[in-house]
Design a protein around this nucleic acid. Structure first.
Lengths: 221, 221
DNA sequence: CTATTATTCAAGTGATTGATTGAATGATAG
DNA sequence: CTATCATTCAATCAATCACTTGAATAATAG
């Protein structure tokens, strides 16, 4: 495929992606997923001005995500077909996965400060064996009960403060949570560091730990 | 759900969609779909400067479409998981459907000129019955052979010129093709109008015609 | 035909994005 | 420790997008 033809194709993809990259248009799509509607009805539901709403709808139409037909004086818009809905759903799935696990807070948490160095699983296993580390499981209690790294202490972020007095300040703390995109461990490390503790987070989470065939403990300690 | 929470969610979706709405980032994703790579390798493949490439990669990472790990001096990027690939595929499917059928040419074709009024299927059926119209099927011959509107003439865009002398200039011509987003009929109408013919396009295409239970003719005439 | 209503177009403003440049960071080799 | 290399950050400019306002365009009612 020639470069220019490829670029033309990419531009086409971009057109669709762009159409999805404004909150107002996503609201419109959400409304249209319920039922086809006229411009005025959509403008009311989304609290946009009619002119603005009309413009957004035209962008959606240009990307062929919606189609329109005239009904007397009114212009009725609807989703083009099931693919539009599929695309919306997948976008939602990917975005919500991020919201639950990654969370942009993580990206801002260490903004400008000295970023913590993740501790590798091999290193943690070694230091666990020699007992030179405190492991903190920052997941909900039920997940902790299901399985956790041996001798790990369980706490939630909100209960962390109560646990602090019991922790030695001269021993390294390694926190972990659900996985590489889970934010809890990072937040715990940030809180601990603020209190003067030596805290790091584990690379990956418990699933990664188990995937390597490392020991876990079941039930409450 | 509160309005602000909903807005926050929508912003999250937008973040993902935005990440997909630059050609450079789609190229990067395409490369990463082949194999994980470092920044320099990606910059070479995509012909971006290294700094620019790095910035795009970070936007992709912010949307959690890719993840990175350090390998010595190099930072290795890869697609986060299969969902990223799914999203890319679906975007491609939707966009290419548009490319094949809608095509932006349609959106530019009548730019500024007097837009043609589509002829409704009911109107065409009526005028077909009284014989006051020429119907033009602007689809590939095999699709025409499979089924077409009774008495429709089949032509391709490139063969249209040869057909012109045979057409009466004082009879309305109605062109149709595959569907509401197919461009052939529009292009044919544009060409015919330039030659002074009274040309319109049919609302929708043959699938819509058949869906209403209207007569079709099978095979060549 | 004219008035009315729904929608769209067009132009201007403020904010955001993408690309470029040069400097700063992080990890390793000597 | 210092030098080096890969990558990232920061600041800048040009281009694009979203929203507002006011005018223009379709379809219908009278």
């Amino acid at each position: 495929m020639s470069t220019s033809a490829k670029m033309a194709l990419l531009e086409e993809y971009v057109l669709v992606a762009r159409a999805l990259s404004a909150p107002a248009r996503l609201m419109l799509l959400e409304q249209l997923a319920q039922q086809e509607s006229g411009v005025e009805a959509l403008a009311e539901k989304t609290e946009l001005t009619i002119a603005n709403c009309s413009q957004h709808l035209q962008q959606l139409r240009r990307a062929a995500l919606v189609t329109s037909r005239r009904d007397g004086k009114a212009m009725i818009y609807r989703l083009t077909d099931a693919k539009t809905l599929e695309l919306m759903d997948l976008l939602r799935v990917v975005a919500e996965r991020n919201l639950a696990q990654v969370d942009r807070i993580l990206r801002d948490l260490w903004n400008g400060e000295d970023a913590p160095v993740p501790v590798s699983r091999a290193e943690l296993a070694e230091r666990l064996a020699e007992g030179s580390v405190i492991v903190l499981d920052v997941r909900p209690a039920d997940e902790y009960a299901a399985a956790h790294i041996p001798n790990a202490l369980n706490t939630t972020l909100s209960d962390l403060d109560q646990l602090l007095p019991a922790l030695a300040t001269d021993v390294d703390i390694v926190a972990y949570c659900r996985g590489p995109y889970c934010i809890y461990a990072h937040q715990a490390v940030a809180a601990l560091r603020k209190q003067g503790f030596q805290a790091h987070h584990l690379e990956g989470g418990l699933p990664e730990w188990r995937a390597e065939g490392r020991d876990v403990q079941i039930g409450v300690t």
